[in-house]
Design a protein around this nucleic acid. Structure first.
Lengths: 336, 336
DNA sequence: CGGTTCCACGGAATCGGTTCCACGATTGGG
DNA sequence: CCCAATCGTGGAACCGATTCCGTGGAACCG
């Protein structure tokens, strides 16, 4: 079956290609008579637009790109889902891409999105801002960062106040009498990984907690690294009495280890997780978490990128990050 | 900044556009000399391909579409992630779309994917196969169904043996002495929802369990409907002693209700969940589940659609679906 | 040394819509 | 009644890359 082009529609309708195009894209004035004939012909033939042809001529597509770092991470899935729904409401379709926490894949998909001439790009970036990302910023496609940023890049962003969230979390543990707090930090190639680690060190020092460097392990935002990190901390000669994991997937991994070792959260060990993910509700006592609002991040980012597309000034937004206390944190048992 | 076209590259390299194209796409023979000059010129100018132009001319793109029904569902996130990684390995980029369990959105994104002239489409379909889906199948773009199917549609698919999985699950409960098994079934607009419900009824009847129709409630594959369903079952005058939820998100919802009511899984109530999702490991005693292999579903679907693209015959695959017994199921307490 | 083959290349047609331009017809105002 | 403005339309140029076709030159063989 050969595909139907606008030429065929025009022929059947007995009008010129130009008129058919005007009717189908609906932007110029056309007579009711040709509107009827063209619409009818298109329906009869089952005509379907070729987006390539259209956006080649128009120079851009009614499409935005959303590039998240890991679609299996429920936090990013929520951002992506919300961004997509919000964009759809504004008449933009979304191309969702998955960098899989790999800079090479991030570059690959940025290239793809740009080559598709999407109208704008929302990205949770990683790396140092080199590679495709840097060269992309010199092009005229609007980019908005979400969740993460790149140092020195002049790009509007929607982020959370990581520093405040972490400070509150460590403060909470300090109040409960914990002196040795283990931290499973995120990758230092991401702004969130760096900010959260810095905030941890600051808060630990501010509250005069044990600053033993062995109490900090660095993971990569994946479940497995949460497992390794938690295991390493628990295996220390003098293990921590509380544990903070700086990302939802690493939190999963850490909790798995506690399960396997029969360590009870909120009793033998206090635990603070990251992102208030739906799945945490499976825990009987609940999980104390540093919470963000991924849904809002997604929709705000879409608003910003659409503003940028029509040339409006947009400025960065920092959302609140706050501690939600549930059953997984409790006073230190062997304190003082 | 005006965008760089292949014409500019050719000019700087001192060759014709034809030669520049041949070098950059690398399919025809070119002299080492022009290869060097063109590559150099492209790098100097920061040339980036316009995919619109290319695929308009070639008639298709090196891109496949993956349309899942809910990206926040970890089961589909896993399928999508795996499909995308697998496709990437074969040189295809993936456009990931989210139907959000809505037929209208499914149609919208199918239209989008087709208008982008993707080389093939993987979809977890819903509805009766009408609308855009039916007309899409008359076009020449290969389609592969994943997880779900549409009755009467002649489309290759990768699915799980729902019937066997459910039979095993109900059999397990029957062996443990349960007579009243509550079921939170999926939406009847999906093949998986229908198959699983039928399998439940068959198994319940086969084992001579209580066939009280009130023991079956129908949800929509979302967390909230799992909550409502579980609550309704527990509120029955004569509540079930075991519960089976037919999807991962509804399982989440059901467990939340048990948490809130302080009902202990594996003691007061036996619970069987669906899909062996990572998050279930948060449960201390583990969750007995009917498990599939979403990773394999994703990669098999990609293999099939790529085969179909090059014109090979492909036939449907039914993957195993099996029960994994963990701590959430136990002998009935008030049995006999 | 002559003829054939093959390679690399330039030029041009092409993919499918959109939009500019020009023209004829219709309408309204003076 | 005539001129001007307006509207709808057909035709053609155009977006950027690929690919077909034809040609010139080098290489190879007899």
């Amino acid at each position: 079956m050969t595909t139907i082009k606008i030429r065929d529609v025009a022929a059947l309708a007995g009008v010129s290609v130009g008129t058919a195009s005007r009717v189908l894209s609906g932007h110029s004035s056309t007579s009711p008579e040709s509107r009827r004939k063209v619409t009818e012909a298109a329906a009869t033939l089952g005509y379907r637009l070729n987006a390539q042809g259209r956006s080649l001529r128009k120079g851009y597509a009614d499409t935005i790109g959303v590039l998240v770092s890991d679609i299996r991470n429920p936090f990013f899935a929520e951002i992506a889902h919300n961004a997509e729904q919000c964009a759809l409401g504004k008449g933009f379709a979304t191309l969702l891409c998955n960098a899989n926490e790999s800079i090479a894949q991030q570059d690959l998909y940025l290239d793809l999105l740009y080559s598709q001439r999407v109208a704008g790009i929302i990205v949770a970036p990683q790396g140092d801002g080199g590679g495709t990302l840097r060269s992309l910023l010199t092009q005229d496609v609007p980019v908005v960062f979400v969740d993460r940023t790149i140092d020195g890049a002049d790009v509007p962003s929607v982020t959370s106040d990581n520093q405040a969230g972490i400070a509150e979390a460590i403060g909470h543990l300090a109040e409960l009498g914990h002196r040795r707090v283990g931290v499973v930090a995120g990758p230092q190639a991401t702004s969130t990984g760096r900010e959260r680690l810095v905030a941890c060190r600051e808060a630990i020092s501010k509250h005069g907690l044990d600053a033993d460097p062995e109490l900090i392990v660095v993971g990569d935002f994946q479940v497995e690294s949460g497992r390794r990190g938690a295991a390493a901390l628990l295996d220390l000669p003098k293990p921590p009495t509380a544990l903070l994991a700086c990302d939802s997937l690493m939190t999963f991994g850490a909790i798995e280890v506690l399960r396997e070792r029969g360590i009870k959260m909120g009793r033998a060990l206090s635990v603070i997780g990251y992102d208030d993910v739906e799945a945490y509700r499976l825990l009987r006592l609940g999980l104390t978490v540093v919470a963000h609002d991924p849904a809002q991040m997604g929709s705000l980012a879409v608003g910003m990128v659409l503003d940028a597309i029509v040339g409006r000034e947009v400025s960065s937004i920092v959302l609140e990050s706050k501690l939600i206390v549930r059953g997984s944190t409790a006073p230190a048992m062997d304190s003082g």
